[in-house]
């Protein structure tokens, strides 16, 4: 390969990298995540309202801030392609329900804490960006929380939350694909299991 070709490759890859970054507005993405966390802390965690109302508000925030369709598709991995349209919808619904219930229950542990935003990092995935934040702990080092944000037109959606380097989406994907591989009923078995888990949480709450 001669020098001209090398520099051409280098130049093209730079342009490509710049193009990928320019697609997402970093400042707006950070402001979006900040807004979501402030909304959650002020209007849900610190609000003086009954638990049922908190759950309702949380479900609303969760559904508007996260692109659960995208996350669900990622989480199912290669099984998304083999699932029927009906199964896909059932899975997304079950996954959404379980997450809303799990998280609204854990939300109160966040009382008295807040996020400190630390700028963004570029992502190589199309229209995505990482928003960095830390949460000061009572003792020792603050916890690192990174938000993977996707821009769709003028709209932003969270597509992954990475806590201390543990990606919720990747963990779920590893877990669910391992389950499907072992389950005799495949995706249907997973959906059934998730629905049962949601019911079990339901019972515990009421």
């Amino acid at each position: 390969m001669n020098k001209f070709l090398l520099s051409l490759v280098a130049a093209l890859s730079c342009v490509w990298a710049l193009g990928a970054q320019a697609a997402v507005d970093a400042a707006k993405a950070e402001a979006f995540v900040k807004g979501v966390t402030e909304d959650g802390i002020e209007n849900i965690i610190n609000a003086n309202i009954p638990q049922a109302e908190k759950d309702k508000r949380f479900a609303k925030l969760f559904n508007s801030a996260l692109d659960i369709q995208f996350i669900g598709q990622f989480v199912l991995g290669r099984y998304w392609r083999t699932a029927t349209a009906e199964q896909r919808q059932e899975f997304i619904d079950a996954y959404r329900e379980l997450n809303v219930q799990t998280w609204s229950k854990r939300f109160d542990e966040f009382k008295g804490r807040n996020f400190i935003f630390k700028g963004t990092d570029a992502s190589n995935s199309a229209n995505q960006i990482f928003v960095n934040s830390t949460v000061p702990m009572e003792q020792g080092e603050p916890a690192k929380v990174v938000w993977r944000v996707k821009q769709i037109g003028n709209e932003f959606k969270i597509v992954d939350i990475i806590i201390e380097n543990v990606s919720l989406a990747i963990t779920a994907r590893n877990e669910y694909t391992a389950f499907i591989k072992q389950s005799p009923d495949g995706v249907a078995g997973l959906i059934k299991n998730l629905q049962e888990k949601t019911k079990a949480v339901d019972k515990k709450v009421s």
Binding site: S123, N124, K144
Partner: peptide
């Protein structure tokens, strides 16, 4: 999965620059 991802925090790099090791999965996201 969580245990192994968290361990990537340690990284084989200098101590300060490992902000987001999950970005290494990026190409596939």
């Amino acid at each position: 999965s969580a245990y192994l991802q968290n361990r990537k925090n340690m990284g084989c790099r200098s101590s300060e620059d490992v902000v987001n090791a999950t970005a290494s999965y990026d190409f596939d996201f």
